[in-house]
Every structure is written in structure tokens, then in C-alpha cells.
């Protein structure tokens, strides 16, 4: 607890320098697992994704730096995914209900978004595993944004 207090007062603190406690590792890792579950449930119904994202935000507001940093990264990684999957979802609905025709553009978008989903899935699993071990798994772009948002 004491070492944590000291760290918090350092403004130039990097997430890599934090030595998390066992329960912190568990909670931070849980954020990624939550995000995985949210994506899986949210695939057919993106609104669930949105609700889960809201819960994420509330979770990230309390908690220590380590937990906050990881839950914020999990949250940020959800945002583009949420937008892309939503577009895909409604596009699919439109095709299934015959309001628009199937097109190569749709299939191209479907493949691109799925590739992104796979990338996101792999990164999230890696994050969950590494965080559980107490290591920080930094994502390209999202890690940088998280640094900007999560200070102290």
C-alpha cells in the first residue's frame, strides 16, 4: 500500500513501472475477460456491447492505477469494434430483410471487420493472460491513448 502511494505522486509514472498486487492483477485481467464476453454476446446484438461498455466505464472510475489503466485500455479497444460491428450488424439485417442486395462491398467489409475482430480477440486474450501475470500488454494506439487519459 505504501509503495503505491509513493508511485501515485509521481507524475512521470509509466504503467510498466507499476508493481501490481495480486487482487489488482485479477481485477485488471477480469476487465479483458469481460470485454471478450461482451463482444461474443454483442456480436448478434450490438446493443449489449453498448451496455457492457457503460459498465466498463463505471468500473474504470474506481480502482487503483493498474486496474484503471487496463480497464481503460479494454474500454477504448471496444469503441472502434462497437462502431464497426454495429455497421456490419445493421447492414446484415438490411440484407436479410431484403432492403438491400448482397454485394461484393458487403462481403469485403464483412471480411475486413472479421479480421479486425480476430485481431482484437487475440490481443484481448494476450492482455488477459499477461495482466494476470502482472505484466502490461500494451496495444498499438490504444495503449498510447490510455497513457494520455490515465494519469497519476
Amino acid at each position: 500500500m505504501e509503495s503505491c502511494e509513493i508511485h501515485i505522486n509521481e507524475s512521470s509514472l509509466r504503467i510498466e513501472d507499476v508493481v501490481p498486487y495480486e487482487d489488482e492483477k485479477e481485477r485488471a485481467s477480469g476487465c479483458y475477460i469481460m470485454s471478450l464476453v461482451a463482444v461474443m454476446i454483442g456480436l448478434p446484438m450490438p446493443i449489449i456491447n453498448l451496455v457492457a461498455t457503460g459498465i466498463f466505464y463505471l468500473m474504470s472510475r474506481k480502482g487503483t492505477f493498474f486496474v484503471r489503466w487496463n480497464s481503460t485500455q479494454a474500454l477504448i479497444s471496444q469503441v472502434p469494434l462497437f462502431v464497426m460491428n454495429n455497421i456490419l450488424f445493421w447492414w446484415t439485417i438490411r440484407i436479410l430483410f431484403c432492403f438491400s442486395d448482397l454485394s461484393s462491398t458487403y462481403i469485403a467489409y464483412f471480411i475486413t471487420v472479421n479480421l479486425y475482430n480476430i485481431y482484437d480477440f487475440v490481443e484481448t486474450v494476450l492482455s488477459a493472460v499477461n495482466t494476470r501475470k502482472g505484466k502490461v500488454h500494451r496495444w498499438y494506439l490504444y495503449g498510447t491513448i490510455t497513457d494520455k487519459i490515465c494519469k497519476r
Binding site: D101, L102, S103, S104, T105, A108, Y109, I111
Partner: peptide, 16 residues
């Protein structure tokens, strides 16, 4: 992915 004519590739019609 847009460069590929997926419909032709998979023999799908737009109104399938």
C-alpha cells in the same frame, strides 16, 4: 478486399 469480386467468386447472386 474490395478489389475481389466476391459474388462471382462464390457464385452468389445479389438477390440470393
Amino acid at each position: 478486399t474490395l478489389q475481389v469480386d466476391w459474388l462471382n467468386l462464390f457464385h452468389l447472386s445479389p438477390t440470393i
